[in-house]
């Protein structure tokens, strides 16, 4: 088993919380893991990505090579497009469709969606809306993780288990909110893939 994931977003959107959940689940499954993160200047509202690599064999490079990513998981639609050169031919893109507009020349949304729709295998999800419907607007990242879960090549229960361990110290309510979010995202993906 080997899976290479590019996590994408804008500095401050919390892509590392998605990585942390997958990482916890991977460790529980005794997988090797490497996860390259962006710290420093770009965290101030710039484009950020994390390269997350899981395998049942030792992993060498911290970086994913061009055309090798099995998954691009993005919390922002234009940012999903930025990393297309890394997507494998049979790879999947899972992205939020809600833009984060902190630049004056952000492209027209219909152009962004048109580009996303050109990708052969994708899940485009309004994670913000689903999170709001669940009355937990801050759990949009978990909705996106849920949408990515069918493609992670990993036992789904281990993800829920990871969430329980990750948020357990914050109380049952927080755990439930995040579990509901990941389930809603997963359901959407299974219906729309």
């Amino acid at each position: 088993m080997k899976i290479d994931i590019i996590l994408a977003g804008v500095g401050g959107q919390g892509i590392l919380s998605i990585a942390a959940t997958i990482g916890l689940a991977a460790l529980k499954n005794d997988l090797y893991l490497k996860q390259a993160e962006v710290h420093g200047m770009s965290q101030r509202g710039g484009d950020v990505q994390s390269n997350l690599r899981l395998s049942d064999k030792p992993i060498h490079s911290d970086l994913i090579a061009l055309g090798q990513a099995d998954l691009i998981i993005s919390v922002e639609p234009m940012e999903a497009l930025r990393y297309l050169p890394y997507l494998a031919k049979d790879g999947w893109v899972i992205t939020n469709d809600q833009p984060f507009k902190n630049i004056p020349n952000y492209p027209e949304m219909e152009d962004v969606l048109a580009e996303l729709n050109k990708i052969s295998q994708k899940i485009i999800i309004n994670a913000d809306q689903i999170a709001r419907d669940l009355e937990s607007p801050r759990s949009a990242n978990m909705v996106i993780l849920g949408a990515a879960s069918p493609f992670l090549n990993m036992d789904y229960d281990s993800l829920e288990d990871a969430i329980r361990r990750q948020f357990g110290s914050k109380g049952e309510e927080v755990v439930d909110v995040n579990i509901n979010a990941i389930r809603a995202g997963r359901e959407f993906a299974l219906k729309n893939k």
Binding site: V10, G11, M41, S42, Q43, R44, G45, G46, D47, A65, L66, G67, Q68, M78, E79, L81, R82, L84, P85, Y86, L87, A88, K89, N102, I103, N105, Y106, P107, E108, D111, V112, E115
Partner: peptide, 20 residues
Amino acid sequence: DFYEGAPVPEIVKPRPPAMC
């Protein structure tokens, strides 16, 4: 030899860091 991936679509704009 390796597959070098699809190009970045032209509409994608740079997103430099900014003050909060």
